[in-house]
Amino acid sequence: MNNINSNQKTVLVTGASSGLGALTAQLLAERGYRVAGAARRSHLVAELPGVLPVQLDLSDESSIDAAVSAVEAELGPVEVLINNAGYGEFGSVEETPLDRARRQFDVNVFGLAALTRRVIGPMRDAGRGRIVNVSSLAGEFSSPLGGWYHASKFALEALSDSMRAELRPFGIDVAVVQPGPVRTAWHGEAMRSLEASSGGGPYADMAAAVAGYHRASADAPITSDAGTVARVIARAATEDRPRTRYRVGRGSSTAVALSRLPDRMFDAMTRRQFGIP
Rank of each mutant, 00 (worst) to 15 (best):
V119L: 10
R128S: 04
E239N: 01
Q55G: 07
D125S: 05
S63K: 11
N108S: 07
N3T: 07
D205P: 04
A46P: 09
A126V: 00
V232H: 02
A85H: 02
G21T: 05
E239W: 01
A257H: 13
P122G: 15
A22I: 08
S193I: 10
D219P: 08
A16I: 12
R250L: 10
E72R: 09
G180E: 01
A226S: 07
F110N: 04
M1D: 14
R40K: 01
N84V: 03
S253H: 12
A38M: 02
R31D: 10
V80W: 09
A70R: 04
L167C: 04
L44N: 09
R168H: 00
D240I: 04
P53A: 00
L145C: 14
A190V: 01
A70K: 11
S198D: 09
I4G: 14
D60N: 05
A196T: 07
Y203T: 11
S42R: 08
A196G: 06
G32R: 01
N83V: 06
F274V: 14
L167K: 01
V177Q: 00
P144Q: 15
A151Y: 12
V51Y: 10
S160T: 13
L167A: 13
V13I: 14
S69H: 08
S92A: 11
M123A: 13
F274I: 11
G201E: 13
D219K: 09
E79T: 08
G129P: 01
L58C: 06
A236N: 10
V54S: 11
L159V: 06
A230H: 05
P97Y: 00
V80C: 12
L23H: 09
E47Y: 06
V134W: 01
A29Y: 15
I172W: 13
I233L: 02
V134E: 03
Q8Y: 09
R183K: 14
A207C: 08
I233Y: 02
V54G: 07
S92D: 11
G171C: 02
A73C: 00
V109S: 15
D106T: 06
D65N: 00
A216M: 10
A16P: 05
T184S: 14
A25D: 13
L56M: 00
A38K: 04
K153N: 03
